[in-house]
């Protein structure tokens, strides 16, 4: 599904990602962990199509297409969904209007007919209920004045509606209380299916109790320095990152 080969990325002439390789097959969940500033969001943003990053080397192919050649909206239409760490607030655009425009834009690109207003409303309400989102949020301006947790849930609502092939969750769990965390995880688990993959960026093993990953990778200084299964997350929870940093300093090869 997604194949990243030796990806190198600079921001303002500073090398942030220094050769990342990652292969994600359909249906897999990959967790990415790592200390602050290691490049997790950078990786997620580059995949989603942000332009302020300069790709200086490597390839990314998504469902056989050169992902880096696609515009951000084309990526979304092709099935990439990024749940942002800090979703923007857009005054004046109601959440409902936004969701309708997004669903129809994606449907059109995928060769499907626009949904009739009644069907659209039903669909949006159904997904909102699944995520425990009060319908009154739909009439509010997009993310404006939403709490951190409400914004994250709203991201999950968009994900549920847009039915991506690959969803990238950047710290969706940060700032969620335990109930919200369960709701979000349930939503992700419901969406897990054979042809849909997830990249879950997180600092907390707690999330991975609910969304059980197939692989866990540790990103450090712009490189994946260690990969393993879900037990790696438990180990990190217990021991922190120092032992990994030491291994890297000592030149012990990863994996």
């Amino acid at each position: 599904m997604l194949s990243i080969k030796d990806l190198k990325v600079d921001i303002e002439d500073k090398a942030i990602l220094q050769g990342i390789s990652l292969d994600i097959k359909p249906g897999e969940v990959h967790a990415i962990m790592g200390p602050n500033g290691s490049g997790k969001s950078t990786l997620a943003n580059v995949l989603s199509g942000r332009e302020e990053y300069e790709v200086t080397g490597g390839d990314v192919s998504f469902l056989g297409e050169d992902l880096l050649e696609l515009e951000v909206d084309e990526r979304a239409q092709a099935g990439i969904f990024m749940a942002f760490q800090y979703p923007v607030e857009i005054p004046g655009v109601t959440t409902a209007t936004f969701l309708k425009s997004a669903v129809n834009a994606v449907r059109e690109a995928r060769g499907l007919e626009e949904l009739k207003p009644v069907e659209m409303l039903r669909l949006i309400r159904q997904k909102a209920d699944m995520l425990g989102i009060d319908h009154k949020f739909l009439q509010r301006s997009l993310n404006e004045g939403f709490s951190g947790g409400e914004k994250k849930r709203n991201e999950m609502l968009q994900m549920a509606l847009l039915e991506p092939k690959l969803a990238i969750l950047d710290e969706t769990d940060s700032g969620l209380d335990i109930d919200a965390l369960k709701i979000v995880s349930d939503a992700v688990n419901q969406l897990r299916q054979a042809d849909r993959s997830f990249i879950v960026v997180t600092h907390y093993q707690r999330l991975l109790n609910y969304i059980v990953p197939d692989y866990v990778h540790v990103l450090y200084n712009g490189r994946i320095v260690k990969s393993g299964d879900k037990n790696l997350a438990l180990e990190l929870e217990e021991k922190g990152y120092d032992w990994i940093k030491e291994e890297v300093a000592a030149g012990i090869p990863s994996l």
């Binding site: 989603s48 909206d73 979304a76 990024m82 004046g92 655009v93 997004a102 690109a109 301006s141």
Partner: peptide, 28 residues
Amino acid sequence: ENSVFYLRSRGLSDEQARALLQHAFLKE
């Protein structure tokens, strides 16, 4: 531009995203 990006990341074209934001600006 952050808002434009956000809307585009949900599949809206650049043109659609800009029109939506302009509309919202006037809607107030």
